[in-house]
């Protein structure tokens, strides 16, 4: 389900947000890289939800507990507060109903961790402004007509959505094109312009 396989520097940042020994649900677990990292370094009790058969098989072969399913459809079957953290990395933009998915993450997890590519990044803006074309970059490699990314947002859009669903932002980080964290002291507009992806820790 994780559609952006190029830059997974966000996984390191996500792992650092997670308390050792906690219960984690990774929504869009891909080939299991994050769950594997968390199991090895943080001794978490991890579970995954992944849409692709290949991804699920790779996870199962690694000994991870992953089920085949769809974030838009299958999150409703998880009980309230069944996990300490629910992670949605690089997947929000590929869901049909991001608002409902975000609500579900906050219902299932004590905390939700969401990472997503920032459509407000300057390269994206430049592509639209100067070329007049939907951006195709190293990190967003799809053309508009075949992209699984159907609901792009900017960092500011996401902050607004968090307010709308009543989520409290416990921490937020933006990574630039090199995967380097952007200084905390920088204002939102700066993050929204230079952040290539963002990682939010939320609770309700």
């Amino acid at each position: 389900m994780s559609v952006n396989t190029e830059s997974r520097v966000d996984l390191r940042v996500i792992a650092d947000l997670i308390r050792p020994g906690s219960r984690v649900l990774d929504v869009g677990s891909g080939d299991g890289e994050l769950l594997d990292l968390l199991a090895r370094e943080k001794q978490v009790d991890g579970r995954g939800l992944e849409i692709s058969q290949r991804g699920v098989n790779e996870c199962v072969a690694r000994g991870l507990s992953v089920i085949q399913g769809d974030a838009d459809r299958d999150l409703s079957y998880y009980p309230d507060k069944g996990f300490d953290y629910v992670v949605l990395s690089q997947t929000l933009q590929a869901t049909r109903n991001p608002k409902e998915v975000l609500n579900e993450l906050l219902r299932i997890g004590d905390r939700a961790i969401v990472s997503f590519p920032n459509f407000g990044h300057w390269r994206v803006r430049c592509s639209l402004m100067f070329k007049g074309r939907m951006p195709v970059t190293k990190d967003l490699p799809y053309s508009w007509y075949d992209t699984p990314n159907i609901h792009f947002c900017t960092i500011r859009d996401f902050v607004a959505l968090c307010a709308e669903v009543g989520a409290t932002v416990e921490s937020a980080q933006a990574l630039d094109a090199n995967g380097t964290k952007i200084g905390l002291s920088m204002p939102w507009w700066f993050w929204n312009f230079f952040g290539q992806q963002a990682i939010f820790l939320l609770r309700r």
Binding site: V56, Q68, Y77
Partner: peptide, 12 residues
């Protein structure tokens, strides 16, 4: 899942 069990599921 609802029972909190550890579960993997593959549809082939």
């Amino acid at each position: 899942n609802a029972a909190g069990a550890s579960v993997s599921f593959v549809e082939i």
